[in-house]
Nucleic acid binder design. Structure first.
Lengths: 159, 159
DNA sequence: GGTGAAAGCACCGAGTT
DNA sequence: AACTCGGTGCTTTCACC
C-alpha cells in the first residue's frame, strides 16, 4: 500500500473540513494564508488519493423519531456460515453497521430504531436468519463523544 | 418535543445531500424540478429545526495507517462510578464512541488504532481507569455496510 | 507546489404572486 | 410556499513564478 504523504497544510485543511464540509475554500485560504486555488488543488489530490472518500450530512435521528440505539452480538452455529449471515444482517433495515469479530460474538452490529418495540422487530429479524443460534442485546442509554475531529488530531500528532 | 414535519420534497433533498454535501443546490433544483431558491429555504429550515446538524468529511483511516477497529466492553465495580468512568474513557485518544449500556457491559466503546500493539495501549488506558474491573475486547475482522443513505430511506418509508 | 486574476456559477435575500 | 432576479461571493482553471 503506497502511503500518501500528507503535510502540515493538508492536516490543517482536513481539520477545517472534517466537521464542516461547506466551509468556503476562500475562508480556508484566509486562515492558512495561502491561495484558494491551492486549497482546491490539495483537496482534489486528497480525493484522488482516496484519503477523502466523500462527505456526509449529519442528521439528528432523534428529531426524526429514531432515538433508540442498541448493539447486538450475534452467535452463529458454524463459523463457516458467518459470511452468509453477515450479508443477511446487512440487508436488514435499521441495522447501521455490522462487523465480523473475534471474541465473544461472531458478528456484532449496531441498530437504530424508533423505540423498544421497533428494536424488537429488528432483533427478531436477526434471530430468524438461518445459522444464527442466538443474540445478545446491549441497549445504549447514553452516548458520549463521537468526535471525528479529535480522532484526526490524535492521528496527526502521531504521523 | 415538537416534531418537525418533513414532506416528500425534504426527503428528496436530504437523500441527495446525505452522501454528498457539496452537490450544488442548482443541481438539486434541476433534479426535483423546483427552483434553487426553494432548495435553499428548505435546507435552511431543516438546519434551524435541528434536523440537519452539520456535515462531515469521510476520511479513509486505513489509508492513513489506522486500519484497526475494535469494540471494548467495560465492566465497572459499582454502577455509581459509571458517569466518572464514561468521562475518563471519552478523553482517551483513539476511543471514537462510548455508550452507557444495559446488558452484559456497563460501558461499551469503539476504538480505532494503527495495529494490535497500538490497540493494546488504548485498552490498557481503559483498564487503568479507577472503577474499571475488567474489559472484554472484540476485534473487527471485517466491516460490512455503514450506509447512512439506506437508514434514511428506511426511515422515510415509515414516516 | 504556489500564485493571482478572470470567467463562470452558486448562493441567498428581497420582492412578488 | 414557491418563484424570479440580481448583487455578492465562491469555485475552478490557467498562464506564470
Amino acid at each position: 500500500m503506497p502511503k500518501f504523504k500528507l503535510d502540515e497544510t493538508d492536516h490543517k485543511i482536513l481539520d477545517l473540513l472534517i466537521d464542516n464540509t461547506r466551509i468556503p475554500f476562500t475562508d480556508i485560504a484566509k486562515k492558512l494564508e495561502i491561495s484558494a486555488g491551492t486549497i482546491h488543488v490539495r483537496v482534489k489530490k486528497m480525493e484522488e488519493a482516496g484519503i477523502i472518500t466523500g462527505s456526509s450530512l449529519q442528521v439528528d435521528y432523534k428529531k426524526l423519531g429514531y432515538a433508540f440505539i442498541a448493539y447486538v452480538g450475534v452467535f452463529i452455529f458454524k463459523t463457516s456460515q458467518t459470511q452468509f449471515v453477515l450479508e443477511r444482517i446487512s440487508e436488514i433495515p435499521f441495522v447501521t453497521v455490522a462487523h465480523v469479530t473475534t471474541g465473544k460474538f461472531n458478528i456484532f452490529c449496531k441498530i437504530r430504531a424508533r423505540d423498544t418495540a421497533h428494536a424488537k422487530d429488528v432483533i427478531y429479524q436477526i434471530d430468524d436468519i438461518e445459522g444464527v443460534s442466538r443474540t445478545e442485546t446491549m441497549i445504549s442509554m447514553e452516548e458520549s463523544i463521537n468526535d471525528k475531529k479529535r480522532l484526526l488530531h490524535s492521528i496527526f500528532k502521531e504521523i
